[in-house]
Amino acid sequence: MTAIPAFLDAYYAAGPDGSVRVSAEQASAFAKDVAGDYNPLHDVDARRFCVPGDLLCALVLGRYGLSERMTFAFRDMVRADEPLYLPEAETDTGSIAVRDADGGVYLEVERAGAVCRDPGSIERFIREYAAFSGKTFPHYMIPVLEEHGVMFHPDRPLVIYDSMGFELETLAFGEPVMELSDRTLAIEGKRGSVQLSFAMQEDGEAFGAGWKKLVISGLRDYDDERMRAFVEHFRERKAAYEAERDGMQPRGYSG
Protein backbone atom coordinates (compact mmCIF):
# COMPACT_ATOMS: atom_id res chain seq x y z
CA MET A 1 0.00 0.00 0.00
CA THR A 2 1.06 3.59 -0.61
CA ALA A 3 0.93 6.51 1.80
CA ILE A 4 -1.78 8.90 0.59
CA PRO A 5 -0.12 12.23 -0.32
CA ALA A 6 -0.34 14.68 2.57
CA PHE A 7 -2.09 17.35 0.53
CA LEU A 8 -5.19 15.12 0.36
CA ASP A 9 -5.51 15.08 4.16
CA ALA A 10 -7.69 18.19 3.96
CA TYR A 11 -10.22 16.41 1.75
CA TYR A 12 -11.12 13.20 3.60
CA ALA A 13 -11.20 11.64 7.06
CA ALA A 14 -10.12 8.11 8.01
CA GLY A 15 -12.49 6.23 10.27
CA PRO A 16 -11.43 3.87 13.09
CA ASP A 17 -12.89 0.94 11.11
CA GLY A 18 -10.63 1.63 8.15
CA SER A 19 -13.26 3.52 6.21
CA VAL A 20 -12.79 6.79 4.36
CA ARG A 21 -15.35 9.58 4.64
CA VAL A 22 -15.65 12.82 2.72
CA SER A 23 -17.72 15.66 4.12
CA ALA A 24 -19.64 18.06 1.91
CA GLU A 25 -17.20 20.84 2.86
CA GLN A 26 -14.15 18.73 2.01
CA ALA A 27 -15.60 17.55 -1.31
CA SER A 28 -16.66 21.04 -2.33
CA ALA A 29 -13.25 22.47 -1.45
CA PHE A 30 -11.46 19.82 -3.55
CA ALA A 31 -13.76 20.41 -6.50
CA LYS A 32 -13.22 24.16 -6.52
CA ASP A 33 -9.68 24.61 -5.21
CA VAL A 34 -7.92 21.63 -6.81
CA ALA A 35 -10.01 20.85 -9.89
CA GLY A 36 -11.50 24.26 -10.62
CA ASP A 37 -14.84 22.44 -10.91
CA TYR A 38 -17.87 24.61 -10.12
CA ASN A 39 -20.54 22.03 -10.90
CA PRO A 40 -23.51 22.89 -8.60
CA LEU A 41 -23.70 19.22 -7.57
CA HIS A 42 -20.55 19.83 -5.51
CA ASP A 43 -21.94 22.83 -3.63
CA VAL A 44 -22.24 22.14 0.09
CA ASP A 45 -25.98 22.90 0.12
CA ALA A 46 -26.83 21.12 -3.16
CA ARG A 47 -29.99 19.01 -2.92
CA ARG A 48 -28.41 16.25 -5.02
CA PHE A 49 -24.89 16.73 -3.66
CA CYS A 50 -22.23 14.21 -4.64
CA VAL A 51 -18.52 13.79 -3.99
CA PRO A 52 -16.43 14.65 -7.10
CA GLY A 53 -15.31 11.61 -9.05
CA ASP A 54 -11.84 13.12 -9.36
CA LEU A 55 -11.47 13.05 -5.57
CA LEU A 56 -12.34 9.34 -5.52
CA CYS A 57 -9.73 8.76 -8.23
CA ALA A 58 -7.20 10.74 -6.21
CA LEU A 59 -7.81 8.66 -3.08
CA VAL A 60 -7.37 5.44 -5.08
CA LEU A 61 -4.12 6.68 -6.62
CA GLY A 62 -2.92 7.77 -3.19
CA ARG A 63 -3.78 4.42 -1.58
CA TYR A 64 -2.61 2.00 -4.27
CA GLY A 65 -0.10 4.01 -6.29
CA LEU A 66 -0.03 5.15 -9.91
CA SER A 67 0.02 2.24 -12.35
CA GLU A 68 1.12 2.44 -15.96
CA ARG A 69 -2.35 1.42 -17.13
CA MET A 70 -5.51 2.22 -15.21
CA THR A 71 -9.25 2.55 -15.84
CA PHE A 72 -11.85 3.97 -13.44
CA ALA A 73 -15.55 3.15 -13.88
CA PHE A 74 -18.06 5.01 -11.69
CA ARG A 75 -21.05 2.90 -10.63
CA ASP A 76 -22.91 5.27 -8.30
CA MET A 77 -22.71 8.75 -6.83
CA VAL A 78 -21.18 9.14 -3.37
CA ARG A 79 -23.08 11.25 -0.87
CA ALA A 80 -21.46 13.33 1.85
CA ASP A 81 -20.09 11.39 4.84
CA GLU A 82 -20.76 8.00 3.23
CA PRO A 83 -18.28 5.46 4.70
CA LEU A 84 -16.20 4.02 1.87
CA TYR A 85 -13.96 0.98 2.07
CA LEU A 86 -10.80 0.61 -0.03
CA PRO A 87 -9.73 -3.03 0.27
CA GLU A 88 -6.24 -4.33 0.87
CA ALA A 89 -4.76 -5.16 -2.53
CA GLU A 90 -3.10 -8.56 -2.85
CA THR A 91 -1.13 -7.59 -5.96
CA ASP A 92 -0.27 -4.49 -7.99
CA THR A 93 -2.51 -5.63 -10.86
CA GLY A 94 -6.14 -6.60 -11.30
CA SER A 95 -9.38 -5.10 -10.02
CA ILE A 96 -10.21 -2.91 -7.03
CA ALA A 97 -13.74 -2.01 -5.94
CA VAL A 98 -14.56 0.89 -3.63
CA ARG A 99 -17.64 -0.12 -1.64
CA ASP A 100 -19.93 1.06 1.12
CA ALA A 101 -20.71 -0.80 4.35
CA ASP A 102 -23.42 -2.85 2.61
CA GLY A 103 -21.15 -3.92 -0.22
CA GLY A 104 -22.55 -1.49 -2.77
CA VAL A 105 -19.94 -0.58 -5.40
CA TYR A 106 -19.22 3.07 -6.18
CA LEU A 107 -16.03 2.78 -8.19
CA GLU A 108 -14.31 -0.08 -10.01
CA VAL A 109 -10.65 0.20 -10.94
CA GLU A 110 -8.55 -1.93 -13.27
CA ARG A 111 -4.76 -1.57 -13.18
CA ALA A 112 -1.74 -3.18 -14.82
CA GLY A 113 1.95 -2.60 -15.33
CA ALA A 114 4.60 -1.07 -13.10
CA VAL A 115 3.58 1.08 -10.13
CA CYS A 116 4.86 4.45 -8.90
CA ARG A 117 4.59 4.93 -5.12
CA ASP A 118 6.39 8.25 -4.81
CA PRO A 119 3.98 10.67 -3.05
CA GLY A 120 5.41 13.67 -4.90
CA SER A 121 4.91 12.13 -8.34
CA ILE A 122 1.42 10.94 -7.42
CA GLU A 123 0.48 14.40 -6.16
CA ARG A 124 1.69 16.06 -9.35
CA PHE A 125 -0.28 13.57 -11.46
CA ILE A 126 -3.43 14.07 -9.37
CA ARG A 127 -3.23 17.84 -9.50
CA GLU A 128 -2.63 17.90 -13.26
CA TYR A 129 -5.44 15.47 -14.05
CA ALA A 130 -7.88 17.23 -11.71
CA ALA A 131 -7.08 20.58 -13.34
CA PHE A 132 -7.59 19.06 -16.80
CA SER A 133 -10.80 17.35 -15.77
CA GLY A 134 -12.12 20.52 -14.16
CA LYS A 135 -12.09 22.23 -17.56
CA THR A 136 -14.69 19.80 -18.90
CA PHE A 137 -17.32 22.52 -18.60
CA PRO A 138 -17.41 24.92 -20.27
CA HIS A 139 -14.01 24.79 -22.00
CA TYR A 140 -14.16 21.32 -23.56
CA MET A 141 -17.84 20.40 -23.62
CA ILE A 142 -19.52 23.48 -25.09
CA PRO A 143 -17.71 23.37 -28.48
CA VAL A 144 -18.62 19.73 -29.12
CA LEU A 145 -22.26 20.27 -28.09
CA GLU A 146 -22.53 23.31 -30.33
CA GLU A 147 -20.95 21.41 -33.21
CA HIS A 148 -23.64 18.73 -32.97
CA GLY A 149 -26.48 21.19 -32.34
CA VAL A 150 -27.52 19.73 -28.97
CA MET A 151 -27.28 20.65 -25.30
CA PHE A 152 -28.32 19.44 -21.85
CA HIS A 153 -31.34 20.88 -20.04
CA PRO A 154 -30.06 24.25 -18.74
CA ASP A 155 -32.45 24.27 -15.77
CA ARG A 156 -31.87 20.63 -14.77
CA PRO A 157 -28.49 19.61 -16.20
CA LEU A 158 -27.75 15.91 -15.84
CA VAL A 159 -24.16 15.17 -16.82
CA ILE A 160 -22.69 12.04 -15.24
CA TYR A 161 -18.97 11.22 -14.97
CA ASP A 162 -18.98 7.71 -16.42
CA SER A 163 -15.35 6.59 -16.61
CA MET A 164 -11.75 7.52 -17.32
CA GLY A 165 -8.51 5.76 -18.11
CA PHE A 166 -4.93 6.24 -19.19
CA GLU A 167 -1.80 4.44 -20.34
CA LEU A 168 1.68 5.75 -19.56
CA GLU A 169 4.91 4.80 -21.27
CA THR A 170 6.96 5.82 -18.23
CA LEU A 171 6.41 6.66 -14.59
CA ALA A 172 9.65 8.65 -14.39
CA PHE A 173 8.15 12.07 -15.02
CA GLY A 174 8.74 15.41 -13.33
CA GLU A 175 6.07 17.98 -14.22
CA PRO A 176 3.41 16.31 -16.38
CA VAL A 177 1.13 18.36 -18.59
CA MET A 178 -2.21 17.08 -19.90
CA GLU A 179 -3.61 18.58 -23.07
CA LEU A 180 -6.85 17.87 -24.88
CA SER A 181 -6.18 15.88 -28.05
CA ASP A 182 -9.72 15.08 -29.24
CA ARG A 183 -13.37 15.30 -28.23
CA THR A 184 -16.28 13.32 -29.61
CA LEU A 185 -20.02 13.07 -28.98
CA ALA A 186 -22.11 9.98 -29.68
CA ILE A 187 -25.87 10.56 -29.67
CA GLU A 188 -28.60 7.99 -29.14
CA GLY A 189 -32.03 9.58 -28.84
CA LYS A 190 -32.10 11.98 -25.90
CA ARG A 191 -28.90 10.56 -24.49
CA GLY A 192 -25.32 11.29 -25.45
CA SER A 193 -21.81 10.37 -24.41
CA VAL A 194 -18.90 12.79 -24.61
CA GLN A 195 -15.36 11.44 -24.72
CA LEU A 196 -12.46 13.76 -24.04
CA SER A 197 -9.08 12.36 -25.10
CA PHE A 198 -5.88 13.80 -23.68
CA ALA A 199 -2.15 13.51 -24.18
CA MET A 200 0.37 13.33 -21.33
CA GLN A 201 3.45 15.42 -22.04
CA GLU A 202 6.60 16.73 -20.44
CA ASP A 203 8.87 19.27 -22.10
CA GLY A 204 6.85 18.83 -25.29
CA GLU A 205 7.40 15.06 -25.44
CA ALA A 206 4.39 12.74 -25.16
CA PHE A 207 4.68 9.89 -22.66
CA GLY A 208 1.09 8.75 -22.36
CA ALA A 209 -2.54 9.20 -23.33
CA GLY A 210 -5.96 8.86 -21.75
CA TRP A 211 -9.65 9.66 -21.93
CA LYS A 212 -12.59 10.81 -19.84
CA LYS A 213 -16.18 9.84 -20.67
CA LEU A 214 -19.35 11.62 -19.59
CA VAL A 215 -23.00 10.71 -20.17
CA ILE A 216 -25.58 13.43 -20.82
CA SER A 217 -29.32 12.84 -20.41
CA GLY A 218 -32.17 14.99 -21.68
CA LEU A 219 -30.51 16.23 -24.85
CA ARG A 220 -32.36 18.96 -26.73
CA ASP A 221 -31.71 21.36 -29.61
CA TYR A 222 -28.87 23.77 -28.97
CA ASP A 223 -30.07 27.21 -27.84
CA ASP A 224 -27.22 29.69 -28.05
CA GLU A 225 -28.87 32.32 -25.86
CA ARG A 226 -29.74 29.91 -23.05
CA MET A 227 -26.33 28.25 -23.16
CA ARG A 228 -24.57 31.61 -23.05
CA ALA A 229 -26.62 32.52 -19.99
CA PHE A 230 -25.73 29.19 -18.38
CA VAL A 231 -22.02 29.72 -19.00
CA GLU A 232 -22.18 33.29 -17.71
CA HIS A 233 -23.84 32.09 -14.51
CA PHE A 234 -21.08 29.49 -14.14
CA ARG A 235 -18.42 32.17 -14.48
CA GLU A 236 -20.18 34.43 -11.99
CA ARG A 237 -20.28 31.60 -9.46
CA LYS A 238 -16.58 30.96 -9.97
CA ALA A 239 -15.66 34.63 -9.61
CA ALA A 240 -17.77 34.99 -6.44
CA TYR A 241 -16.19 31.92 -4.86
CA GLU A 242 -12.66 32.99 -5.68
CA ALA A 243 -13.30 36.48 -4.30
CA GLU A 244 -14.59 34.99 -1.05
CA ARG A 245 -11.67 32.55 -0.90
CA ASP A 246 -9.11 35.30 -1.35
CA GLY A 247 -10.62 37.16 1.54
CA MET A 248 -11.32 34.18 3.79
CA GLN A 249 -10.10 30.70 2.88
CA PRO A 250 -12.87 28.09 3.24
CA ARG A 251 -12.51 25.03 5.39
CA GLY A 252 -10.37 22.37 3.73
CA TYR A 253 -8.53 24.81 1.48
CA SER A 254 -4.89 23.86 0.98
CA GLY A 255 -3.55 26.76 -1.06
Rank of each mutant, 00 (worst) to 15 (best):
A89E: 10
V105S: 02
V109I: 12
M164P: 00
L214S: 07
A46T: 05
D37H: 06
E169D: 14
G189L: 12
M77I: 13
D54G: 06
S23G: 15
F125T: 02
E232Y: 00
A209M: 03
A172L: 11
P40I: 13
P250A: 07
R21S: 09
R75L: 12
V60L: 10
G165E: 08
F49T: 09
G247T: 09
K212F: 00
L185G: 03
P16F: 03
A199Y: 02
R220G: 06
E232F: 00
A35P: 07
K238R: 15
L168F: 08
D33M: 10
H148M: 10
W211L: 01
A239I: 02
T184Y: 08
E146F: 09
P83T: 06
D203K: 14
C50G: 13
D43H: 05
D162L: 04
E82R: 14
D182A: 15
A112V: 00
R191N: 11
Q26I: 10
G252F: 05
A97Y: 04
L196R: 01
M248E: 15
A14C: 07
D54W: 08
E123M: 02
S19E: 05
D100Q: 02
V144D: 05
E110N: 08
K212P: 00
V215A: 12
A3K: 11
A131D: 08
R245M: 11
A229P: 00
R127P: 09
V150S: 08
E236H: 05
V177Y: 04
Y38T: 06
D155M: 12
S163G: 01
L66A: 09
V215I: 13
A73S: 13
A112T: 06
D17C: 02
V34G: 04
Q195P: 00
V20W: 06
S197K: 03
R111C: 08
C50S: 15
M227H: 00
V177G: 04
T91C: 01
D100M: 03
P52T: 13
H153N: 15
S197C: 06
G149Y: 15
T136E: 03
S19K: 07
M227I: 13
L214W: 04
E147C: 03
P154M: 05
E242V: 06
K32C: 09
S193I: 06
A13L: 05
D33I: 11
L107M: 07
E128M: 12
L84Y: 04
H42A: 07
L56Q: 14
I126R: 07
G18Y: 01
D76G: 12
S163T: 03
A6H: 12
E236W: 00
G36D: 04
G204D: 07
R47H: 10
H42R: 08
Y253F: 15
